[in-house]
């Protein structure tokens, strides 16, 4: 059945008629054409679909769009702009925190939540904090360096 869903995405009001079994990631990608959020495994393991739901990192392949009524969603498109990147995006660029780039949006959204919720981070806590995101290129070293640098930038 179709149902009206109202939420905020990247600060803008969104109101859409959706099938009730629509996943949040499909609302973002297919309806709103925000294709920065990726679908990797579709089984809540890889983290490529990570977005912020009311400020916290979640896997948008495992949330129904109708559950987000009245919520605020932020995707990778909503954290910065090409002219003014988010400090996490800057750090991924400076430290070359990506190889093929497929996992990058999810990594960035998880890493921002990680920096927000942890008072201090070191290599181990970053690796543990990013357990819900998989990089098939295995480019973890530079991803960890990127998050370390971004944490310093975000706290200054």
């Amino acid at each position: 059945m179709a149902r009206e869903v109202n939420l905020k995405v990247n600060g803008e009001d969104v109101s859409e008629q959706l099938q009730e079994n629509t996943l949040l990631v499909d609302l973002l990608r297919e309806t709103l054409r925000l294709t920065g959020t990726h679908v990797g495994c579709d089984t809540s393991q890889c983290g490529a679909c990570t977005v912020h739901l009311n400020g916290r990192a979640v896997k948008s392949c495992t949330v129904l769009a109708v559950q987000c009524e009245g919520s605020e969603v932020t995707t990778v498109e909503g954290i910065g702009s090409p002219e003014k990147l988010h400090p996490m995006q800057e750090a991924f660029s400076e430290c070359h925190g990506l190889q093929c780039g497929f996992c990058t949006p999810g990594m960035i959204m998880s890493a921002i939540d990680l920096v927000h919720r942890e008072e201090s981070l070191d290599e181990n806590s970053i690796r543990e904090g990013l357990e819900g995101n998989i990089c098939r290129c295995t480019g973890y070293h530079n991803i960890v360096r990127s998050v370390e640098l971004a944490a310093t930038k975000m706290r200054n």
């Binding site: 990570t50 990192a57 896997k59 939540d113």
Partner: peptide, 9 residues
């Protein structure tokens, strides 16, 4: 339990 995103839901 699980990972950070799973613990948030």
């Amino acid at each position: 339990i699980g990972d950070a995103q799973v613990r948030n839901r």
